[in-house]
Design a binder for these strands. Structure first.
Length: 567
RNA sequence: GAUUCGUUAGCUCAGCUGGUAGAGCACAUCCCUUUUAAGGAUGGGGUCCUGGGUUCGAACCCCAGACGAAUCACCA
């Protein structure tokens, strides 16, 4: 790996610091007492402070310098004065250590006192500074002017996601989003706990990937010599716990689905699922809307959110509409009593793609997805889904073709999904068998039969309502982010390709002299194969050209030298 | 998977009709004792994504590929 000029300069500074007697990566703790944000908010003249953070700006003006220290709470200006730092005749601590060998990005500790500059900016007069960690790579440092315009912003999404640590250092709003994310989850957790519901952990490695229709990741357990799947949902485990006697259980779960990736899909994502005994889906609608409203108010102090071009209100109550009415409203089609063939014909007439594997439920789902879903900007519960597409949901109390299921639509997308849970084990077994038929018909999302889950239902599960909500998408809505990658600290990316560096040993084995090994690589020959492919004369010219350009203090190569190499 | 766009200095980006690779910041050296996006001066820094082709000459045109982004498709 070739270092840039700036990286070399920093490595030189590192050597000089060591030679001077300063350990650039010391072991000792640093007794931090203060934080930038707090010092600025509670300014008190001449207060003695001790702070640590990253040096983000440095402006040297002779015997005085200004800088900015960024810690976990924010930024504060620091003022270095030569004679404050160096009491005696020896001014090297300022002239050399601070001015020459410290770099932007270094982590330092500072003791000093608070004051305001002539311009009125709260600053720390540095009395003593300690290098706590040297930074060997230059940071991309954006600048912001008085009007708030940012220059040289570090915006390339690929670099930002791959090097989130850099993104977090230089783009303060990014950190803000992730702080909000944690607060949202905490507030939901508090809400559930205040109702007495129990947070649990269920298996991520599952022998049967159940509870949803999705393509799973598959792995293998060596000792058991059996396949295991990364969970696509935790529903069936949580319901087993309701059978076991918990009244309310919930889990913030990472689920994994082996499907496409785009700005709303990441292979692993976070879902909250909650199951409450003795409740139904009507109760769950009340519960869900009040949970969301509560989170909005606790974390953001408002129920009104700007999402892209829309303003969305999470003020309760949310609108409720049946699937039949939704489709009727947006297409004038009444799905009630229609046969599979009638629905399929309607789809064909209305440019909705269908195929043979689609049953009645799937067709209705397609119609809703194509013609209705996008219209629901304000939070709306769409309820009473066709039975075929809800194999874990109890039949509707008034219409056996439907189930007691709702989805919460916000900003034209599904946010949450909930049922009055199916607890009749005989019905459940039949529904699984229906799924099996669908799967034989070619639906690769149809579910497996989980025998143990059926056994648990046979012992009796109280009437229960369950709800799942996509945490990543909820955070996107509440923080006005348009891609899931912006709310995941480390979104999945294609593996990065790394230059493994020169195989100098291989060069050496070809008879290339010691003093040339590194230069052969730096001149552009990455491997012995490269040398073999090139003409001897070309190698000769290229290497001597490299020698001349870099003013290398080694003898020029003769063509015979290269002919003697075994390349 | 399809389409479109992109890849030039550490960062953000210019680069005309094909004719000597540029700017700002960052970096280095020097000057400056309270600055405010960058005080002043000077300087170093490039595999123009890769490989072919066209051409007297390619960052630029053509072909192939790599990587990325956006849109679409897929996606309970």
């Amino acid at each position: 790996m070739q270092l840039s000029e700036q990286e070399n300069i920093r490595r030189e500074s590192l050597k000089k610091l060591k030679a001077y007697g300063i350990e650039p990566f010391p072991q000792h703790l640093y007794p931090v007492e203060d934080y930038a944000k707090n010092l600025i908010e509670n300014f008190s003249e001449d207060k003695t402070v001790c702070i640590a953070g990253r040096l983000m700006r440095r402006k040297i003006q002779g015997k005085a310098s200004f800088g900015t220290i960024q810690d976990s709470s924010g930024k504060i200006q620091v003022y270095f004065n030569r004679d404050e730092i160096c009491n005696g005749e020896d001014k090297s601590l300022y002239n050399d250590v601070f001015k020459k060998w410290l770099d932007l990005g270094d982590i330092i500790g500072i003791r000093g006192s608070l004051f305001k500059t002539r311009v009125g900016e709260i600053s720390i007069l540095v009395k003593e500074f300690t290098l706590l960690s040297k930074s060997l790579k230059p940071l991309p440092l954006p600048k912001t002017d008085k009007e708030g315009n940012t220059y040289d912003a570090f915006t390339d999404p690929e670099l930002r996601y791959r090097q989130r640590y850099v993104d977090l250092i230089v783009n303060s709003h990014v950190k803000e989003t992730f702080i909000k994310r944690t607060q949202i989850i905490n507030s939901m957790r508090d809400f559930f706990n205040s109702k007495g519901y129990h947070e649990v952990e269920t298996p991520i490695l599952q022998p049967i990937p159940g509870g949803a229709a999705a393509r799973p990741f598959i792995t293998h357990h060596n000792a058991l010599d059996t396949p295991l799947y990364l969970r696509i949902a935790n529903e069936l485990y949580l319901k087993r716990l309701i059978v076991g006697g918990f009244d309310g259980v919930y889990e913030f779960a990472k689920d994994f689905r082996n499907e496409g990736m785009d700005r709303t899909h990441n292979p692993e994502f976070t879902v909250l699922e909650i199951y409450v005994a003795y409740k139904d889906y009507n109760w769950m609608m009340d519960f869900t809307e009040s949970m969301i409203e509560n989170t909005a108010l606790k974390v953001f102090g408002t129920t009104e959110f700007t999402v892209g071009e829309n303003t969305i209100s999470f003020k309760t109550p949310f609108k409720r509409q049946s699937m039949r009415d939704a489709i009727l409203e947006h297409t004038q089609l009444d799905i009630d009593g229609k046969s599979e063939q009638e629905l399929r014909n309607w789809c064909l007439d209305n440019n909705i793609e269908v195929d043979k594997t689609m049953g009645k439920g799937k067709l209705i789902d397609e119609i809703f997805g194509e013609k209705c879903e996008g219209n629901y900007i304000q939070p709306t519960f769409i309820k009473d889904y066709p039975i075929e597409m809800s194999p874990l949901c109890k039949k509707h109390r008034e219409n056996p073709e439907l189930t007691e299921r709702f989805e919460l639509m916000v900003n034209g997308k599904e946010l949450a999904n909930a049922y009055t849970e199916l607890n009749d084990p005989i019905d459940q077994r039949e529904r699984f068998q229906e799924q099996l038929k669908l799967s034989e018909k070619g639906d690769d999302e149809a579910m497996f039969i989980d025998q143990d889950f059926l056994r648990s239902l046979e012992y009796g599960m109280p009437p229960t309502s369950g709800m799942g909500i996509g945490i990543d998408r909820l955070v996107m809505l509440l923080t006005n982010q348009s891609s899931i990658q912006e709310v995941l600290l480390f979104p999945q990316m294609k593996p990065e390709k790394w230059d493994s560096g020169p195989d100098l040993e291989a060069f050496k084995n070809c008879g290339i002299p010691e003093e040339w090994l590194e230069h052969v690589y730096n001149a552009g020959f990455n491997s012995v194969e490269d040398l073999k492919e090139a003409k001897k004369t070309a190698i000769h010219q290229k290497l001597n050209g490299f020698r001349k350009k870099n003013k290398l203090d080694i003898p020029a190569l003769q063509l015979e030298d290269i002919e003697n190499w075994s390349v």
